[in-house]
Amino acid sequence: MSAVIKIENLTKIYKLSKRREVTGLLNFNLEVEEGEIFGLLGPNGSGKTTLLKIMLGLISPTKGKVEILGKRMDNVEVKKDIGFLPENPYYYEYLTGSELLDFYGDIFDLPENVKRRRSQELLSTVGLAKVKHMVLRNYSKGMLERIGLACALLNNPKLLILDEPTTGLDPIGGRETRDLLLGLKKEGKTILLSSHFLSEVERICDRIGILDQGRLLAVGRLKELLKERKVETFEDLFIKIVKNNV
């Protein structure tokens, strides 16, 4: 197995003014292997979003290196193999569901027939086939989350990056999403998801990383971490690690 994500010494410092700086990430190191589901956990403001943004080339790191699928992130071509679902996805509200997929399909440069076929498949997978001709303005929060997932899978990505994927979903939707993710894992896809739902992460992730104040405080399999830190539950583990850091 080879590393799909390889992050070395990643540091991001936000300059607010000449004197004031805020550390987003500090000397962050991480490797995620092919075919695993990796869960990124941390309280709000811990640096999860900063990390994802750097990985997607939306912001540039102050220091360090990110390699995805063996390529540096400033190479846009890498993104052909990445699917991304942002937190609270918001799309062009004047497009319909199928128009949105069509638009992103063009951005991915998918051939016309592949684009058609994948859109159809994905719309029924996420359960939106009936409302594909409705404009997104009229979609509910959960529907937006689902169409977002469809967009993220449109290019049949090798790596899927999900930021808080089940926030907007009801329990049934959350369940369906989890099953979908496990199915994707079986297909050999690598998934990186950030969340603060401990139960969600506990159920589907192979390994987890706990972040706070821009640092990776713990990384490994959940069972091993519990044993290592001598705690019973995931919740205790999380609280212990984050509190120790303060």
Binding site: L56, G57, V78, K79, I82, F84, Y90, F108, C151, I161
Partner: peptide, 14 residues
């Protein structure tokens, strides 16, 4: 503002 850029630039678009 609507963060559509966020999703768009995460795609292979220069």
């Amino acid at each position: 503002e609507k963060k559509t850029l966020y999703t768009l630039l995460a795609k292979p678009l220069k």
